[in-house]
Design a protein around this nucleic acid. Structure first.
Length: 568
RNA sequence: UGGGGCGUCGUCAAGUGGUAAGACACGGGUUUUUGGUACCCGCAUACGGAGGUUCGAAUCCUCCCGCCCCAGCCA
């Protein structure tokens, strides 16, 4: 391996390249990043990408990453969200240590910086209405017009701003604006509002303030106060960078962080806007923020995804500036890879059909040895009960087997995993021609799953002893939407038109290996041949086990079936 | 003919003038008591297009085309 590309494990991207250079040139010798959520919703996998990016950089460069709540809008923000965000970041495996901050911690300083701007004639109190301000802003093509209030004296502005703070004006009556350039081709520079009057109490500062800073003013200054070296945000803030820099140049802050923008995550079949996610919750299309179909961190957690797999996913998708749409299959690949190594194997029949082994003694019960994880011998073995009546999966039997079907069918022999070879001798049906039971015979010499004559048996089925089975509920999940690219909906349609009616399937009569009724809710397991499952942490109990399917196993047979159907 | 970005395989993504990494997906095969896993093979004469500079261009220049973002007292 003389290849320069041999190590793909370390993420490399344009942001790390910038940091490498800043370290080389001595611009910085310690790297500080930050993850700055607004506490107005739950974190989703797009945020996870940003968290992994910012905390990952801090970890790899021996720097640190701050958790800072961007809580400058008390109308939309709530304490509930702050707690969920902290829990999610921790669960993802990151630690901000002592460095938890809130933009609201800086309200006093921000206010002083605003005064500094006013004193430099770089800000003024605007008394025009919201509508008038919009009119004066101009359009994309036409320059804006200067406000009649733009040239108020410093003293007047100072007085007015103080009175804004003291609550003398009503909401909407006036705002503080930066005095930049109404003719700028960048609309963000046309005297942006930096303080507005909001009489709402703030979750953290209570009734202390009746004016609140806007994002553009608060964010950069907060970065500077904390000594952030690289302020990483998403692409839509690219146009704001000149403003970010302008504020930091005008005001006496301790340093001037560099804003760097990257493309946010888009995932196929997945909605990634906080607003629409909120809608799904409010309209009860899903069962809360942590519904296992949600792309929220709490949803993924309840679904059974591991933090390791999400971090791996983040590393694999990379970081760049072009708009992109990542294939859901990659996320699924990441969990499968993680769980394959770690999940214990069990047998669980999701859609049972009864099988009577006619030549097996009525009352006999045997304990058979099963391997817990073929990928990891140290995980040991277990004993599984076997008896005369068992369940197998309904679609593991076909009366008229298609080509290449090597599961059970009349007259055919298959292996029951870790148990015996059985041959189907009779199909029992009800009046409506539904198969209700199969009668099979077993070969006593095949105990454990192989015979002295070493004859080959192609199919191996999972099974559960009927008298020992634990009855359980299993929920199967599919994507919430039927459209891969939800940014590309037809005109006059919205996401409601693309809801997948099969996103949730609840199976009530599943028959599971008894050990499955006695798991810890953090145990993720594999049901052999079916997929990876996790006990639902809200509903699972030994009396009534409830499982969520995390992801299926790769299913080559399903692909063959599909292509055979196409070929017909 | 407002400004800011971006265009490399189906999807991500390296590449920074020296002759197109890697991953997922997909197709084929080997092993297999999970049609799982693992392993092997294949998969861009080609980098949005057209010109140009150069011995040599995905990388530099020119023009063109396409996509995304911005007119909140949201972040």
């Amino acid at each position: 391996m003389s290849d320069k590309n041999q190590d793909n494990t370390k993420p490399t991207n344009f942001i790390r390249a910038i940091i490498d250079k800043d370290l080389e040139t001595g611009k910085h010798d310690y790297i500080i990043t930050r993850f700055p959520p607004e506490p107005n919703g739950y974190l989703h996998i797009g945020h996870a990408k940003s968290i992994c990016l910012n905390f990952g950089i801090a970890r790899d460069y021996n720097g640190r990453c701050h958790l800072r709540f961007d809580d400058t809008n008390p109308m939309k923000e709530e304490m509930e969200y702050i707690e969920s965000i902290k829990q999610d970041v921790k669960w993802l495996g990151f630690d901000w240590g002592e460095h938890e901050y809130h933009a609201s911690d800086y309200f006093d300083q921000l206010y002083q910086y605003a005064i500094e701007l006013i004193k430099k004639s770089k800000a003024y109190v605007e008394h025009s209405t919201q509508e008038e301000i919009r009119q004066m802003r101009g359009t994309l093509k036409e320059p804006g017009k200067e406000s009649p209030y733009r040239n108020r004296t410093v003293e007047e502005n100072l007085d007015l701003f103080e009175r804004m703070r003291d609550g003398e004006f009503d909401e909407g009556e006036c705002v503080l604006r930066a005095r930049i350039d109404m003719a700028s081709p960048n609309l963000n520079m046309r005297d942006p509002v930096i303080y507005r009057i909001l009489k709402a109490p703030h979750p953290r500062t209570g009734k202390k303030w009746s004016i609140y800073p806007m994002y553009d003013f608060a964010h950069g200054i907060s970065d500077a106060i904390e000594g952030i070296t690289h302020s990483i945000c998403t692409l839509e803030f690219e146009d704001h960078r000149p403003l970010y820099d302008w504020f930091l140049d005008q005001v006496s802050v301790p340093c001037h962080p560099q804003q760097i923008e990257f493309a946010r995550l888009n995932l196929s079949y997945t909605l990634m806007s906080k607003r629409k996610l909120l809608q799904l919750v409010r309209e009860k299309i899903v069962d809360g923020w942590d519904d296992p179909r949600m792309p929220t961190v709490s949803g993924l957690r309840r679904r059974g995804y591991t933090p390791e797999s999400i971090r791996d996913f983040s590393d694999r998708i990379g970081v760049a500036k072009r708009d992109s749409m990542v294939d859901l299959a990659l996320l699924e690949y990441c969990v499968r890879e993680d769980l394959n190594k770690r999940a214990r194997r069990y047998m669980g029949v999701l859609d049972p059909i009864k099988v009577v082994i006619t030549n097996y003694p009525e009352d006999k019960v045997e304990m058979l040895k099963a391997v817990n994880n073929p990928e990891d011998e140290s995980m040991g073995t277990r004993q599984v009960p076997f008896s005369r009546v068992i369940y197998i999966e309904r679609d593991d039997f076909k009366e008229d087997p298609p080509k290449k079907f090597f599961r059970l069918s009349p007259g055919k022999e298959v292996r029951l995993r870790y148990a015996y070879y059985i041959t189907c001798v009779e199909v029992i049906k009800d009046e409506e021609d539904n198969i209700v039971e199969l009668h099979c015979t077993f070969d006593p010499k095949s105990r454990g799953g192989f015979t002295p004559d070493r004859r080959r048996v192609k199919g191996t089925l999972h099974w559960v002893s009927a008298q020992h089975a634990a009855e359980a509920t299993v929920r199967l999940y599919e994507p919430l939407f039927t459209l891969a690219d939800l940014n590309d909906m037809e005109e006059d349609k919205d996401f409601h038109d693309y809801l997948n009616p099969d996103s949730l399937t609840v199976l009530e009569n599943c028959q599971l290996e008894p050990a499955l009724a006695d798991l810890d809710t953090s145990d993720r397991v594999q049901f052999e041949r079916k997929g990876y499952f996790v006990p639902d942490h809200k509903e699972y109990s030994s009396e009534k086990p409830v499982f969520n399917r995390i992801v299926t196993l790769r299913d080559t047979w399903a692909k063959i079936e599909k292509s055979m159907k196409k070929g017909e």
